Computed example of a mutant assay.
Amino acid sequence: MNKQTTSVSHNSATYDLRIGGWLQHLHSDLSDALKEIATEDILLPNGQQVGDYKAEKKDEYNAQSDSYYSSPKRYLNVCSVRDFRLDWDTLIKEIKKEIIGTCVPLLMAKHKLSEPEQYEILKAASNGHVAAMFWIGARLREKKDDNCLRWLSMAHNRGHVGACYEMAAYLESQGNHNEALRCLIVSADGGCDLAYMSIFSIDNLITMSKIEQVSLENMLDEIAATHSSSARYLEGMLLFFQGKETEGLAVLKAFLKSPKRQPPKGSIDEVYENQIKVVSSFVEGILADIAYGIHPLDAIHARCEQAGFIKFKDYDEVVKAVEKMRLST
Rank of each mutant, 00 (worst) to 15 (best):
E36T: 10
F84L: 04
H25M: 08
V78Y: 12
E36W: 10
H27A: 12
D66M: 08
D66L: 11
L34H: 12
D29F: 13
S71C: 06
Y69M: 08
Q48T: 10
I42H: 01
Y68F: 09
A63V: 03
G51V: 10
R82W: 06
L26P: 00
K58R: 07
L86N: 06
L43Q: 13
A33R: 09
N46C: 10
C79N: 05
P72C: 05
I37C: 05
A63W: 03
Y61A: 03
H25G: 02
I42L: 08
Q49L: 06
A33P: 02
S80L: 00
Y53H: 03
K57D: 00
Q48K: 15
E40Q: 14
T39D: 04
D83Y: 02
E56R: 10
H27W: 14
L26Q: 02
D66Y: 05
L76T: 02
R74V: 09
Y53R: 00
R85S: 14
R85A: 14
S80V: 00
L34T: 06
N62L: 14
A33T: 07
D52Q: 14
Y61N: 02
Q49K: 14
D32V: 14
D32F: 11
C79K: 13
Y61V: 05
P45D: 05
Q49M: 09
S70P: 03
T39A: 08
E40A: 13
S80T: 01
K73G: 05
P45G: 04
V50H: 04
L34A: 13
Y69C: 04
V78Q: 11
L44M: 11
H27C: 09
D32A: 15
S28K: 12
S28Y: 13
R82K: 13
V81A: 02
S71M: 11
V78T: 09
D83C: 09
K35H: 11
S80A: 12
Y61W: 11
R74L: 09
Y61E: 04
N77D: 15
N46T: 14
L43T: 07
S71I: 05
V78K: 06
A38I: 02
L30K: 14
G47F: 05
L26H: 01
E60R: 05
N77Y: 02
L26T: 02
N46M: 11
E56H: 13
Y68K: 13
N46G: 06
S67Q: 03
H27Q: 15
L44Y: 08
Q49D: 08
E56G: 05
D59E: 13
I42V: 12
L76N: 00
K57C: 07
I37R: 00
K57R: 08
T39R: 10
L86G: 00
K58D: 09
L30S: 11
H27P: 01
Q48I: 04
Q64R: 10
E40H: 13
L44N: 04
R85G: 04
Y75Q: 03
H27K: 09
A33N: 08
K35P: 02
Y61P: 01
H25Q: 15
Y69G: 00
E36A: 11
L30Y: 15
D52I: 08
L44K: 07
Y69P: 03
L30T: 15
G51I: 06
V81H: 03
A55Y: 08
E36D: 15
